[in-house]
Amino acid sequence: MRYTILPALVLFVIACNAPESTSPDLKKPPSAKDTLHLYSNNVHDSFTVYVNLPADYWLDRSKHFPVVYLLDANLYFDIMATVLNNYAAVGLAPPVILAGIGYKDFPAMDSLRNRDYTFPTAIAEYEMPVSGGAPQFLAFITNELAPSLDRQFRTDTLQQTLMGHSLGGYFTCYALQQRLAGKQHRFRNYIAASPSLHYNHYFLPNELKNEVPARHDSLNVYITFGGLEKQDSLCRQLPLLFPTSITKKIDIYSALDHMDTQLPSFIKGLQWQSGMMNP
């Protein structure tokens, strides 16, 4: 078994307009969309980070905005930026800074996401040439990328969200487990669409079950699965894995399969976490 993005989605990406690949000029006001190129000393590799600013960013120069960190940005950034811009304009989504973490191109993402989104090293049956790098990737986000964005943009450091799908959802849950263990304190909100929690024989759910939570502020967790994934048993167990102090919501999209849940999950998760929909 090999975790890859389906070929049909490649055609979707090609049809979208890719963000302009230029580094921001910090002497000028930020544009609606910026592209940053960062080398990570933790991962020992380079990343392309796409930034979309809300329309409200220029209305009040003293206002700071929540940041949403989106994984698999080569695939999802364009569509999510467009949806968030349009939804925010009519009050259906919160105004946020969207930071999409991507790679130099789509083929690189389809390969290196296995390296960056997983921990521990994959068992042999998954046929992953590289894996297990989630600790280094999380360190890149929290210690290198996020401080850089905090310096360049008016970010609300107390309202930051991480969201991902499939292995990206697994990494999102891994970051939550690290937060509960007191090993990172960047994110308050987590959105995981169809997380691959079966990875390495349910390693991460077992870790969450055995975790003794460190002291933490209020956390919000939104997890979804497609009804066609047949994860009913896992969905019943998941609420029991998290401390009672965590605000959590687990949704099943009955007519959707694994590769269909990402976009509705991201939108509904952001709406729920911002109080735009009923819990």
Rank of each mutant, 00 (worst) to 15 (best):
residue 185 H to R: 08
residue 185 H to V: 03
residue 185 H to Q: 10
residue 185 H to W: 02
residue 186 R to W: 06
residue 187 F to M: 05
residue 187 F to A: 02
residue 187 F to W: 05
residue 187 F to V: 02
residue 187 F to L: 05
residue 188 R to S: 08
residue 188 R to I: 01
residue 188 R to W: 00
residue 188 R to K: 11
residue 189 N to Q: 09
residue 189 N to P: 03
residue 189 N to A: 07
residue 189 N to D: 12
residue 190 Y to W: 10
residue 190 Y to R: 07
residue 190 Y to N: 08
residue 190 Y to Q: 09
residue 190 Y to M: 12
residue 191 I to T: 06
residue 191 I to A: 03
residue 191 I to W: 01
residue 192 A to C: 09
residue 192 A to S: 13
residue 192 A to P: 03
residue 193 A to T: 01
residue 193 A to K: 00
residue 193 A to M: 01
residue 193 A to Q: 00
residue 194 S to Y: 03
residue 194 S to K: 06
residue 194 S to F: 03
residue 195 P to T: 05
residue 195 P to M: 04
residue 195 P to I: 02
residue 195 P to R: 01
residue 195 P to Q: 06
residue 196 S to I: 03
residue 196 S to P: 06
residue 196 S to A: 13
residue 196 S to H: 04
residue 196 S to M: 07
residue 197 L to F: 10
residue 197 L to D: 06
residue 198 H to L: 09
residue 198 H to R: 10
residue 198 H to Y: 12
residue 198 H to P: 00
residue 198 H to N: 10
residue 199 Y to L: 07
residue 199 Y to N: 03
residue 199 Y to D: 02
residue 199 Y to C: 02
residue 199 Y to M: 05
residue 199 Y to E: 02
residue 199 Y to A: 04
residue 199 Y to S: 01
residue 199 Y to P: 01
residue 200 N to W: 01
residue 200 N to M: 09
residue 200 N to G: 05
residue 200 N to T: 03
residue 201 H to T: 13
residue 201 H to S: 14
residue 201 H to F: 11
residue 203 F to A: 14
residue 203 F to I: 10
residue 203 F to R: 10
residue 203 F to Q: 13
residue 204 L to W: 08
residue 204 L to R: 04
residue 204 L to F: 12
residue 205 P to R: 00
residue 205 P to E: 04
residue 205 P to K: 01
residue 205 P to I: 01
residue 205 P to F: 00
residue 205 P to T: 04
residue 206 N to H: 15
residue 206 N to G: 15
residue 207 E to I: 13
residue 207 E to N: 12
residue 208 L to P: 00
residue 208 L to K: 04
residue 208 L to I: 07
residue 208 L to V: 08
residue 209 K to T: 13
residue 209 K to S: 14
residue 210 N to D: 15
residue 210 N to C: 11
residue 210 N to Y: 13
residue 211 E to K: 15
residue 211 E to Y: 12
residue 212 V to Q: 14
residue 212 V to N: 14
residue 212 V to P: 06
residue 212 V to G: 07
residue 213 P to R: 07
residue 213 P to I: 08
residue 213 P to A: 11
residue 213 P to K: 06
residue 213 P to E: 09
residue 213 P to G: 09
residue 214 A to R: 12
residue 214 A to D: 13
residue 214 A to P: 05
residue 214 A to I: 10
residue 215 R to V: 15
residue 215 R to N: 15
residue 216 H to T: 14
residue 216 H to F: 13
residue 216 H to L: 10
residue 217 D to V: 09
residue 217 D to F: 12
residue 217 D to Q: 13
residue 217 D to E: 15
residue 218 S to I: 10
residue 218 S to M: 12
residue 218 S to K: 14
residue 219 L to H: 11
residue 219 L to V: 12
residue 219 L to D: 09
residue 219 L to A: 12
residue 219 L to K: 11
residue 219 L to M: 12
residue 220 N to T: 06
residue 221 V to S: 04
residue 221 V to T: 07
residue 221 V to D: 04
residue 221 V to Y: 04
residue 221 V to W: 01
residue 221 V to N: 03
residue 221 V to M: 08
residue 221 V to P: 03
